[in-house]
Amino acid sequence: MREHRSAVFSTGHQFLEGLRWHHGKLWASDFFSKTVKTFNADGSYTDVAEVEGSPSGLGFLDDGSVLVVSQMDRTVVRIEPDGTQSVHADFSQYAGGIGNDMIVTGKGDAYVGNFGFALGEEDPKTTRLVHVSADGSVNPVGGEVLFPNGMAITPDRVLLTAQTWRHCITAFDIQEDGSLANERIWAQLDDSVHPDGIALDADGGVWFGNALTLESDSGFYRVVEGGEITDRVAIDGAWSVTCAFGGDDLRTLYMACNVTTLEEFHDGKSTSVVATANVGYKGSPAM
């Protein structure tokens, strides 16, 4: 396994999620400050929107609008270029827990996950992803998944999602109507690993954050189909939550690292930094 070093890029955050690279800038959601942020090349940042229901997954539409998962409301909020906000989709009837990550396709379709249960209060329960059409209509898709988290779409239209509590990356084939078929395990991980946010590189590897640990096994790992771990960026003393490739050449891996515990997370206590690493791979362009 190849090891890579990281460097701190940006500090002063609370709990970052949903990293995305879009139009030359890094974007992120901050759960606890309830803000959507963009970052400059020097690590400084701007709060571009406030989402009262706590923002999570992010995506972008061709007209310049931003889609944001509002966790507590279990909705997808649409932020227009002028800052106006509206509810794009309401998926609450299909969500057993608060909203979570999301990926948006070039056609404006979105796939959204949710916790499936009240984290820390209930035993883990399965849920389903939801497909949000460009017009905002919502349908559950795919099979039962356990704490679906980060998502990526391959060039051949395969949706990959991390199942945090099943310790695996799962694959689905995207159908023409947006539904998901042919569910299979793409990579089974060790039971001690809890994959969170993911990013796809141009060579077909998936980078994932191993969350829920502050120990030496925290870090961002690269796994290939079948489950072989090839690379790691070690992150000590923080949850390794989510990552995205960015930079002009898509060769910088940006990583959200959150210092918290499950107990502190429930109390809204966390500090967060963005780190970077040059891992020798180029990111796969957004689909």
Rank of each mutant, 00 (worst) to 15 (best):
G204S: 06
A187W: 01
A277K: 02
E122P: 05
I174E: 00
I229N: 00
E17I: 13
M1F: 07
L67E: 03
D177F: 12
D156F: 11
S137L: 06
T260R: 09
R74A: 12
E17W: 08
G120A: 07
D62C: 02
V36Y: 06
S33H: 11
S70L: 10
W207A: 04
W27S: 01
S44P: 09
R2V: 09
A286E: 03
T213V: 15
A202R: 06
S284D: 09
G108W: 04
Q93F: 03
S272M: 12
S65D: 09
G43D: 05
V36K: 06
V241R: 01
E176K: 13
T252S: 10
I79L: 13
L189V: 03
H266E: 13
S179T: 15
A41C: 01
S137N: 10
P124R: 03
P55V: 13
Q175H: 04
T242G: 11
F91C: 08
A244W: 00
E80N: 07
R2T: 08
A211R: 01
G205L: 03
Q14A: 15
A118N: 13
I153E: 01
V141A: 09
T276D: 04
L189R: 01
D191T: 08
G57S: 13
S270G: 12
D73A: 15
T75F: 10
V279K: 00
H266S: 14
V141E: 09
G143K: 10
L214I: 05
E176Q: 12
V158Q: 13
G83R: 07
H131D: 07
D123P: 08
G197M: 05
D190T: 07
V224K: 08
V8G: 02
D101W: 08
T261Y: 06
T271R: 15
S270H: 12
S54E: 15
G18D: 13
W207S: 03
W239T: 04
D63S: 00
V87R: 11
A238S: 14
C168Q: 15
G96N: 05
E176C: 00
F32W: 14
W21V: 01
S33L: 12
G97D: 06
I198Y: 01
T154F: 08
E176R: 14
V51I: 15
E264Q: 13
A110L: 06
M1H: 08
D190E: 14
V77N: 03
R128L: 07
Q163W: 06
T84N: 08
T164D: 07
G143M: 10
W239M: 10
D90I: 06
G219E: 04
Q163F: 04
R232N: 08
H4G: 00
W27I: 02
P55I: 14
L200R: 01
W186N: 01
V206Y: 04
D201I: 00
H266A: 15
A234L: 03
R166Y: 05
D173T: 14
T105N: 05
F60T: 04
G106K: 12
G97M: 03
E122L: 10
G113N: 04
H88Y: 14
H88I: 06
N258A: 13
H194S: 13
M102W: 09
S92Q: 12
E264M: 07
P148N: 08
H4P: 01
H13G: 10
F245E: 04
T260E: 05
V87M: 12
L26M: 12
